[in-house]
Every structure is written in C-alpha cells, then in structure tokens.
Design a protein around this nucleic acid. Structure first.
Lengths: 162, 162
DNA sequence: TTAAATGCAAAGGGTTTGCACCGGA
DNA sequence: TCCGGTGCAAACCCTTTGCATTTAA
C-alpha cells in the first residue's frame, strides 16, 4: 500500500503527548515497555486518523522489519484497554483503529487521493442536531467517516472514477 | 441550492422493481438467468441497506443450502457491472454492497442493536453544505455511514456497549 | 528471578481463482 | 451445440491463538 496519508499537520499540542506517559502507565500496571511497543507507539503518534491493523503492521515493518503481526495486534489490545485507541467495527465488519479519541471528532476521507482529515464537532453539529431531532438518533461522532473528494481533487478535475 | 440531483436516463418509472427486468437484461448481454442468480436477487430485493458478501452468502444459504460462495461473489460482480449494486470500500478496506444506488443516500448504523437506516440527502444537506463551504469538500453521500445509537437503544438505557 | 512479551507457526474467517463439468439459450 | 455458470478445492489476506523462548523490571 502506498500512501503516506498526510493530513493537516496537527500542531495542536492541546494534549501533551499522552504517549509520553505510556511507559510509566504500563509499568504502573505491571506491564512492560518494550522496543516493539515503542515502534508501534511511534507509528500511532504519527498517525492522525483511522488505520486498520494491517496498515499498522505495515508501517511498523517499515520502521522495524522484524515486526510480527501478533505482537502488533496484542499491543493494540493493551492500548485499547488503556483507552489510548479505540477500535470501531463499522457495519462492514472490518476493524479500524482510531487514535486518541480525546476530542470528539469524526473523519473526512478523500476517495481520490486517500487523504484524511478531522471532522470536528462544530462542522458536524448540524447533522448531529438534525438526526437527533428528527429520529432521536444519537451520533457517535468519533465513529463517523464522511467520504467524498477533497478540494484539491475536485479542482484537479471532475473525474469520477471509472 | 442548485441540486446536483440528476435523474437517471431511463427506466426510472419503468421498474419500481428493477430486479424484474434483470433476466432479460442479462440475456440481452449474452448472459444467463440461473436458479443461483435468482436466489441471490431474491435476497437482495429483500435487503434494504448495505450488506457484506458474507452476509449475502449466509442469506442465500438460508434460501438454498447448496449455495456456494464463489457463485455469489461472481454474481455480485456481474450485478455491479449492470449498475444494480455498488460496492463501497470504506477507508477500512472491507467491502460492503449497497443495493440499488438510485437515490443518493448514506446510512445510519446503530452500534447497539446493529440496526441500519437510510440517511437521505435532505437530512445530510446541512453537513454537505457546511463541508463544501468550509473546505471545498464534496461529500459522496452514498459512501457515508453515520454511527451512533438509535432512538430505541438510547431509550432503553445509557449503556455503552452491547 | 519471574512473569509479561515476543516470535513462530498454525488455525480461522472472508474472498478470490483455476479448472472440469453442467446446463441455459 | 456452445459458451457462460457452477461447484469444488485450494490459495490468499487479515487476524487470532498456542507454546517455547526471551527479556524487562
């Protein structure tokens, strides 16, 4: 898979890298801080959106070719227990990991370039309100992904996809 | 509010049940109408939203225990060529089949009960407008799935996971 | 030291493909 | 009759699990 999905450089240091306290967090619970976990955390801290397990395995392998899938998946389990990531099983069944659901936000995904951006609460407010009022549906924003085409791709041509 | 709604060239009023014309449609292209295909079309015509291949295989097996996965998947390919279904590969990678994408609509998915509903253009209009105005993002509604909890589940208690 | 983690390999579920046979037009 | 479809089995991809070994604390 190619893509270095580069989204908007997230320079909001609102939350001081929660990853930094992870080693201690783990040790405090009798768990261990290992090189393999560091590799994964490294990848996750660089990621901005949602990733599948396979993508994470790939990226970890980029950083450390000796990476093993089982280790990655097991560590993801641990991280989810700690609340650092969350896996969303969309209706499609595939699992997808969301990094740091600290602020409630969804995602925008460009089907042309593969880019990914955050969809924040204010932008989705209208939809959320509409669905709540109209059908009592309570949107879980962090699980929402809006697919479409980003401004750049729209500008570069009205091609649809063959 | 210039609608991007475009009427489909033909067969609009001709087939409230487009499945009915399928046998002829197939034969017109030198393809065949078989019992196995009838089974799948039967299942699809009963389905209202999005289904994974595995779900379709299951349902076909309900109707006809001799159903084979390969046949189902191959027929899905054909149906997609004919434009009767569309497979959406969300960012998660898993494929999901949408039945009859005649009207542009997204989906609502309840994470508690697994229920699924259509999200029509009018409900999403606010979001679509907001994203277009704010970022030039062109939403592809048929690929949007809004996850949350439906009114019933919300009412039956603030439980988080089922 | 000691139990948590790792690595390997094998098992499982969903989807795809090759190939000989079957059967709709 | 002919060529599209079917069924079977095997192949693949992603994820999980069992078990012996390594290693952080």
């Amino acid at each position: 898979m190619s893509g270095t999905l580069r989204a908007m450089p997230s320079q909001q240091t609102a939350a001081p890298n929660p990853w930094e306290s992870l080693p201690d967090e783990l040790r405090a619970r009798g768990m261990r801080w290992t090189p393999q976990r560091r590799t994964l955390i490294d990848v996750l801290s660089r990621a901005d959106g949602h990733l599948t397990g396979a993508e994470l395995v790939d990226r970890c392998r980029d950083a450390d070719p000796t990476t093993t899938p089982s280790t990655v998946y097991r560590t993801l389990d641990v991280l989810e227990d700690l609340g650092l990531i969350r896996h969303a099983h969309g209706p499609a069944g595939r699992e997808e990991f969301h990094v740091l659901p600290t602020t409630d936000h969804g995602h925008l995904h460009c089907s042309s370039c593969g880019g990914s951006w955050e969809l924040d609460a204010s932008e989705a407010a209208g939809l959320v309100r509409e669905l709540h009022r109209g059908r009592g549906f309570q949107v879980s924003l962090s699980h929402v992904t809006v697919v479409g085409r980003c401004a750049d791709c729209v500008a570069s041509g009205p091609r649809q996809r063959a």
